[in-house]
């Protein structure tokens, strides 16, 4: 098997198009963490998150010939992942399985059941945010995109990103006050 460690994304894509699936494994390894942050940030720790993560890479594989290298591969994959996550959240909402957004209830859970586990607390805090705020937090805080990139990925104006970010931070400040 060829070692592709030093290959750029576009070189790896060329190899995949030629039919070498082992090059695809390198793409997955390179962006798995990034996609996990998006999907798990949006959906929380659940079985669907893993499925959406896989689906993100499979969608990319299916449309690999359409990738024009106009945006960075990480951004391209993030866009697929965020869209799939938003679709999943819509499905959840339809099935009325969405988590409650009652902050008081969540704070109660945090003090009694979470036992100061930062991982669980962050998950609960993120899930308690409205989807529109959560997506901005995931893009800006977890992925590290700037305001303009976040606006482009989420297809919303820059001003909206800023206002949503500010409101989301206010909410998180309340939810995570024990850890601040």
């Amino acid at each position: 098997m060829i070692e592709y460690n030093n290959y750029s994304d576009i070189e790896l894509i060329d190899e995949i198009i030629k039919g070498d699936n082992s090059a695809f494994r390198y793409i997955i390894a390179r962006y798995e963490g990034q996609i996990a942050r998006v999907v798990k940030g949006m959906l929380g720790e659940c079985a669907e998150a893993e499925d959406i993560g896989q689906e993100t890479f499979i969608r990319f594989y299916k449309s690999i010939n359409k990738f024009r290298n106009e945006s960075q591969l990480g951004t391209y994959l993030t866009r697929i992942a965020i869209n799939l996550s938003l679709n999943e959240l819509k499905k959840r909402k339809k099935k009325q399985k969405i988590f409650s957004s009652d902050e008081n209830k969540i704070l109660k859970i945090s003090s009694k059941e979470v036992n100061n586990d930062i991982n669980e607390m962050v998950t609960i805090a993120l899930q308690s945010l409205d989807v529109k705020y959560r997506s901005v937090i995931v893009m800006r805080m977890l992925q590290g995109y700037d305001t303009k990139e976040t606006a482009q990925i989420l297809k919303i104006p820059v001003g909206t990103v800023l206002s949503r970010l500010s409101r989301a931070q206010d909410k998180l400040r309340i939810l995570l006050k024990d850890f601040l």
């Binding site: 699936n21 695809f24 494994r25 997955i28 390894a29 798995e32 963490g33 996990a36 942050r37 798990k40 940030g41 998150a49 893993e50 993560g53 896989q54 890479f57 499979i58 930062i118 991982n119 962050v122 998950t123 993120l126 937090i137 800006r140 805080m141 977890l142 970010l165 931070q169 998180l172 400040r173 995570l176 850890f179 601040l180």
Partner: peptide, 26 residues
């Protein structure tokens, strides 16, 4: 950007299961 919140949010471990890549390749 609130640095403290940023730090806490980033502290969380975000990763998929160990055989994530294998499942996709399959």
């Amino acid at each position: 950007m609130d640095e403290k919140i940023n730090k806490i949010i980033k502290q969380k471990d975000y990763s998929f299961s160990p055989y994530f890549a294998d499942k996709i390749i399959d």
